[in-house]
């Protein structure tokens, strides 16, 4: 019952971006993948979500090899990506975006219950339910992207830089929601440059630099680590 990456290698054209990444996300935990801009964090998530075929290594979900499956097949196995660019449906309403988040599901009652759940989590989205996604503020768009991901009822949420471009108060709010999401039983692989915010909510963490995992440890240990403090916390 774990999401595991073993020796993942990936890149674009001639560029080797991810060079043998191994990590594990146990069920119901928040695992942070930290590192500077350009380290290969988003590329790693794209591989897990099936948007990019790895050049080597394995992605295993509960032991099943899922690397190379198309994104819709990955989603049906319980992994949902909330990408860095959010990738919302801009002219569709908030409600329609959420509805499409549940595209792979057929259980009407469960979908309705989860819609209530995401509205309880992000009350702002209920107020904006009839508005086109493109008219939302940056923070609201991030909430919608997370909520849309949750509508597939994933066991693992792959979150790429939820703090990007948001004001500090909003970042606080979003990260508090991540703890609530974990309480619902959803594990999170949290990619962040904002190490301080990520380590406050994470259980475990990895530091990626130029495509290689440099450090690994419990969130508390990483937050106390001198190298991490110097490079990312200060």
């Amino acid at each position: 019952m774990t999401l595991e990456l073993a020796g993942i290698e990936a890149g674009y054209g001639g560029a080797r971006v991810v060079q043998g990444v191994s990590l594990a996300v146990p069920p119901g935990r928040i695992v942070a993948l930290l590192g500077p801009n350009g380290a290969g964090k988003s590329t790693t998530l794209r591989v897990v979500a099936g948007l990019l075929r790895p050049r080597g290594g394995e992605v295993r979900l509960d032991g099943e090899r899922i690397a190379g499956l198309p994104p819709d097949a990955v989603l049906r196995r319980g992994l949902a990506l909330v990408p860095e660019r959010r990738e919302l449906f801009p002219s569709l309403s908030v409600a329609e975006n959420l509805d499409l988040g549940a595209y792979a599901r057929r259980d009407r009652a469960g979908i309705a219950a989860d819609l209530e759940m995401v509205f309880a989590l992000f009350p702002r989205l209920r107020e904006r339910r009839t508005q086109p996604a493109r008219t939302l503020s940056g923070g609201e768009q991030q909430m919608l992207a997370i909520a849309r991901g949750l509508m597939s009822r994933p066991r693992y949420l792959l979150l790429d830089e939820p703090s990007l471009g948001l004001a500090p108060l909003l970042i606080e709010e979003i990260f508090r929601k991540l703890v609530e999401i974990r309480a619902h039983g959803t594990a999170i692989l949290l990619v962040e440059q904002n190490a301080a915010a990520a380590l406050r909510v994470a259980d475990h963490g990895y530091v990626l630099e130029t495509g290689i995992i440099r450090l690994e440890g419990s969130a508390a240990a990483l937050a106390a680590d001198d190298a991490v403090r110097d490079a990312y916390l200060r």
Partner: peptide
């Protein structure tokens, strides 16, 4: 229809469609 909603999603954003579980091909 479900068929039509998948088409609209691809019109709006192919990457978004793929990550909600719609087969773009």
């Amino acid at each position: 229809t479900r068929f039509g909603r998948a088409i609209v999603a691809v019109y709006e954003n192919p990457t978004g469609a793929a990550i909600v579980g719609i087969s773009v091909p």
